[in-house]
Simulated assay, not measured.
Amino acid sequence: MEQPVAYEVSVQGERVSGRAVMRGSASYEMASGEIARVRDFVREFLASAQTAHGWDMSARAMDVAQLVASELATNVCKYAPGPCLVDLECDGTTLDIVMWDSGPILPAASAADPNRIGRHGLELVLMVCQSFEVRREPVGKSLRVQIALPDSPDNNPSGQTTW
């Protein structure tokens, strides 16, 4: 049975840098099809941010944001089924994705193994995000990642990345 998604997007004040901040939240039960809904939420949020603020977001950043959200949601489905909360925050230069689930086990990237089939999602996330943080919560855990949105004139991601 598909659960309704709580979706809220709002523009919140100004950051110290003087830039507007857009935030969105959604909740999921992480049943079949929810991974695609998380990915759609991220895509729609970024499209709304572009339209509302005229922020420059490369196609690369849109794709990377959806990939990261999909990989994080897949991990929730596999290892912490149940409720999941997704919070997005964008200031036009970065997108923060925070995903909370009720699972107590903290994720860890697997050691490199060219013969391993699957279980590469967290490795991909670590490669394409500017930052990655895991926090144990009173119930479960939260993962926070940050993705650079605009590209430099030579089509490379702006800001410091691990790749």
Rank of each mutant, 00 (worst) to 15 (best):
V64L: 06
P153H: 06
P83C: 11
C129D: 00
M22P: 00
G140C: 01
A49W: 00
W163E: 13
S110Q: 11
M1Q: 04
V134I: 14
S131D: 10
G18N: 03
P114G: 15
R136Q: 15
L143D: 08
V86Y: 06
P104I: 02
V42W: 06
D40S: 13
V76M: 04
W55E: 07
G159W: 00
V9L: 09
I147L: 05
N156C: 08
A148I: 04
E89V: 12
D113W: 14
Q50C: 03
N75I: 02
R60E: 03
I35K: 09
E123Y: 10
M22F: 04
A6F: 06
K141L: 01
E71W: 03
V86H: 07
D91S: 07
E44G: 13
R15T: 13
A73W: 02
Q146F: 12
W163I: 15
F132V: 15
S10I: 11
R39F: 02
P138T: 04
V76R: 09
E2R: 08
P4E: 02
R136K: 13
E34S: 14
S25V: 07
A31T: 03
L106C: 14
E89Y: 03
D151M: 01
S102A: 13
L122Y: 04
A52N: 01
E71I: 00
D63A: 05
M22H: 01
A111K: 10
V64K: 02
L149E: 00
P104M: 02
E123T: 08
N75V: 11
K141T: 02
L143T: 02
M30I: 08
E2H: 12
C129K: 10
P107E: 13
C77I: 13
E14I: 06
H120L: 06
P153G: 15
E123I: 14
P114T: 10
A65Y: 12
S102V: 00
R119D: 06
R119N: 15
A65Q: 09
M99Q: 13
S17M: 15
E44T: 09
P157E: 03
A109V: 08
N156D: 13
L95M: 07
T74W: 06
L85M: 09
V64F: 02
V9G: 09
E34Q: 07
E44N: 11
Y79S: 03
A73G: 05
